[in-house]
Design a protein around this nucleic acid. Structure first.
Length: 518
RNA sequence: GGUCCGUUCGUCUAGUUGGCCUAGGACGCCAGGUUUUCAUCCUGGAAAUCAGGGGUUCGAAUCCCCUACGGACUGCCA
């Protein structure tokens, strides 16, 4: 029995896909690729009331951004379509009816309200062997009674009939053996009164029909897995039942509980891959892409949350991940989300991004017109700041002074380094620059060194103010590299007292206008 | 409440056949170095009595039991 590996990611289009879902999709992808199998995208939209417009498109776009490609599914079709459950609607009922004929399911007429009342009135109420014979269903009504209600158009559901006193043992690829007594299971609804199957039926039928070999899904499904095993058994598919792997949950960074939609914006970081605007409430949620994350970094970070290669490697391309991934190295316990580490990964990837990509991002963020069209200039500017930023979105602010004269100066630097003699020192160096060759930062540095040496000046006393006048800031790339890039004209302009004096706050101007530069 | 799953530095984790573990790595934190500055980078440090308690064993983070704590599920939602 060496069937091809076929796994699926089966989200419900009820809103944006959060990172836990993305990780599930990623692990499915890695597992499929590692085993030379296929990954299928199936949309589980059997709940018409929870459908959210745009959610399906969001899922596709998010996964595409991450580099998770599907072999079959709603977008690219395939031999087992359609891949949207609402479009497979008619296919599920016969299976439910088959189960009724075999005595593994029954028709139930209890309304949602009646059930709710029972749950409220009786502690731990559930429809099972101990209660089903006092409910309104085909078991208690008999064939004639059931037919009569059906003929009258009474709404009904189809429930599985869970046997009492059996033990269901299943093998989970991550957790090992999991066993459950059927007595604690309840007669779950398989087919709803609106003509749609529930998740339980639809998922089992579709996984079987689509020849799914492994079901890799979140831990929240573990409690209902025994029910699914029973369904495979009753439907006669136990021999080809997929293997199960239940992934640990992604936990919130503070306190307890699983990561939820609202945690992100409360804690100040995204929980969604892409930005999302809820079409009903208008509420927006931030996304990793918009926050300036590189998809490679995002994927790398996510992959390591709940899985590890057993080596000390931290940085993985998608290809590396495919090669290294195995289900047996997936963690059992939930993983707490750590945004600081996500940032670190992003920095790592930012460091080896080609300059052209950085420049492209900068241009896209700043908009045309505000930046010089000189590609090389843009790339060099980005290259100089790349190790000083965490996000792509830091680029415009980090490179601003390459394109515009600073409008203000760092006040701490000003207080600490701006002395009475500073303007004179600047003027002295500035004069030497008039004839200098700006093409090479080292030449400029040579001139500077000679200047401070011959005049016996402490280099910091002039370098710091120089940087401030040139960039407005206290830190950044090497001063001479900046000068070389912005060129002689810009450098000299920014070093001119007529230019910088008006920018220096009043108290300090008072100091220095008394002693104009010599 | 019930059922199931889980529990190694603050966080992600190594440890999977019990001995090489005085528990390793990474993020973060602290200190020092490199750098004209910031960042990067380098070096070092603090940080887990392996949830607690019992066993089994010459020997347990690793096997067994109990307890505690946490989480998920408990819907005509997925």
């Amino acid at each position: 029995m060496n069937n091809p590996v076929r796994v699926r990611f089966a989200p419900s289009p009820t809103g944006p896909l959060h990172i836990g879902g993305v990780r599930t999709a990623l692990y499915n992808y890695l597992f499929a690729k590692k085993s030379g199998g296929s990954l299928i995208l199936r949309i589980e939209d059997t709940d018409q009331t929870r459908f959210v417009p745009g959610a399906g498109e969001y899922i596709t776009e998010a996964l595409q951004w991450c580099g998770i490609a599907f072999d079959e599914g709603v977008e690219n079709g395939g031999p087992y379509g359609p891949y949207r459950q609402s479009e497979r609607k008619d296919l599920y009922k016969p299976y439910a009816e088959q189960l009724i004929r075999q005595g593994h399911a029954y028709v139930a007429f209890d309304t949602a309200e009646e059930l709710e009342a029972l749950r409220k009135a009786e502690a731990n109420f559930q429809v099972d062997a101990s209660t089903r014979m006092r409910m309104k269903n085909s078991l208690t009504l008999g064939a004639a009674g059931t037919e009569a209600l059906l003929a009258a158009g009474t709404p009904y559901v189809i429930r599985i009939l869970i046997p009492a006193g059996e033990q269901i043992v299943m093998q989970d690829l991550i957790r090992g053996e999991v066993s459950v007594q059927t007595d604690i299971l309840d007669d779950k609804v398989l087919f709803k009164s609106d003509g749609m199957p529930t998740y339980h039926l639809a998922n089992v039928v579709d996984d079987h029909l689509m020849h799914i070999s492994h079901v890799i899904r979140g831990e929240e499904w573990l409690p209902s897995a025994p029910l699914h095993v029973l369904l495979y058994r009753y439907l006669g598919w136990e021999d080809s039942m997929p293997r199960f792997a239940h992934l640990p949950l992604l936990l919130r960074p503070d306190g307890n509980g699983k990561l939820s939609k609202r945690d992100g914006d409360r804690l100040g970081f995204p929980v969604f891959p892409l930005k999302w605007k809820d079409p009903h409430t208008g509420e927006t949620s931030s996304g990793y892409r918009e926050a300036g994350f590189l998809p490679q970094a995002f994927v790398n970070f996510l992959a390591l949350l709940g899985w590890n290669p057993g080596t000390e490697q931290e940085l993985f391309s998608m290809e590396d991940l495919v090669n290294a991934f195995t289900l047996d190295r997936v963690q059992k316990a939930g993983a707490r989300f750590d945004y600081e580490k996500a940032k670190w990964f992003n920095q790592q990837y930012l460091k080896d991004l080609p300059p052209a990509v950085l420049a492209g991002s900068l241009a896209a963020q700043t908009g045309s017109g505000r930046l010089p069209s000189n590609e090389v200039f843009l790339e060099k500017a980005c290259d100089l700041v790349r190790e000083r930023i965490t996000f792509l979105t830091d680029l415009p602010e980090a490179t601003a002074y390459f394109f515009e004269d600073p409008a203000s100066y760092d006040s701490d630097m000003l207080k600490k380094r701006w002395k009475d003699e500073t303007p004179g020192l600047i003027a002295g160096f500035s004069a030497l620059l008039e004839e200098a060759d700006f093409t090479d930062p080292e030449i400029l540095e040579g001139i500077f060194k000679q200047y401070v040496e011959t005049n016996r000046i402490n280099s910091g006393a002039v370098l710091a103010p120089l940087r401030m006048l040139l960039t407005g800031r206290a830190g950044g790339p090497g001063v001479f590299q900046i000068m070389s890039l912005i060129g002689k004209e810009t450098t000299l302009r920014r070093l001119n007292p007529a230019h910088y004096l008006p920018i220096i706050p009043d108290p300090l101007v008072g100091n220095i206008t008394d002693r104009p530069p010599s």
